[in-house]
């Protein structure tokens, strides 16, 4: 009787021991996995070109050996992106160097483009393309003519605050019902203003805001004395 009871207790003990062993194994597996994940997290991830572009900017000496090594390493880590960045830099340099027969010292790549420093001068490059710098005169006229009007600049300022209905614009600008549509059409044709057809509101577009900034920039430059004969 007692012997049978003892056998049962022993069986139970063995079962518990097996259970404990299984649990310990599971715990060890878990610990190993956690360590692995920690290591994975510790590994620094390569900066994406986007992050680089967002960064404040870096001064790069293209002839610097360390930089070249870093670029190669970066390219290896990033695969296709690395190649893309390399091409990006090449484009920056070749565009900026176009027509320049001088020794280049360094290139500055920032969030809004790049700047190449020469011994005696500095050339800027913007990602939209160098060709954009040389505006065909007729295109310049199309873009600037709508700004050559006090009324239209006033309309742009009114729209820069809020989108507005025709009636509001008429009241705030003081323009007559026959004159306002003419100015609005000029601004719409230039792409500085757009109109919602359902609600009828007028809105300033992204080029519209840029045009206002251009006018402000010119004004600030002129009033600060740049371009005046100082002799």
């Amino acid at each position: 009787m007692f012997g049978r009871k003892k056998d049962k207790e022993k069986e139970r003990e063995d079962e518990l021991r097996d259970e404990m062993r299984r649990l310990e194994e599971q715990m060890a597996n878990l610990r190993r996995r956690m360590e692995k994940e920690k290591d994975y997290r510790r590994e620094p991830s390569p900066k994406s070109p986007k992050k680089l572009r967002r960064a404040k900017g870096v001064n790069i000496d293209l002839d610097d050996e360390v930089f070249q090594e870093e670029m190669e390493e970066f390219g290896r880590k990033m695969g296709a992106y690395g190649v893309e960045l390399g091409d990006y830099i090449k484009t920056v340099v070749s565009d900026a160097m176009r027509g320049a027969n001088r020794a280049m010292r360094s290139v500055f790549i920032g969030p809004k483009g790049a700047r190449v420093r020469f011994d005696d001068n500095e050339v800027s490059w913007d990602p939209e393309g160098v060709a954009a710098r040389q505006v065909p005169p007729e295109e310049a006229q199309r873009l600037l003519a709508p700004l050559a009007s006090e009324e239209r600049i006033r309309i742009l300022y009114l729209l820069a605050d809020f989108p507005r209905y025709h009636q509001d614009l008429m009241e705030l600008s003081g323009l007559k019902p026959g004159t306002l549509p003419h100015h609005l059409k000029q601004l719409e044709d230039a792409g500085y203003v757009t109109q919602e057809r359902v609600r009828g509101r007028y809105l300033i577009t992204i080029p519209g805001r840029m045009a206002l900034k251009l006018a402000e920039y010119l004004h600030n430059q002129m009033t600060s004395g740049i371009g005046e004969d100082t002799d």
Partner: peptide, 19 residues
């Protein structure tokens, strides 16, 4: 059908209205 596929952003409006 008139659709104003225009959104207002900080930098200005973008999109187009079509009929």
């Amino acid at each position: 059908v008139i659709v104003d596929a225009i959104v207002e952003t900080k930098r200005g409006a973008i999109g187009q209205s079509r009929e």
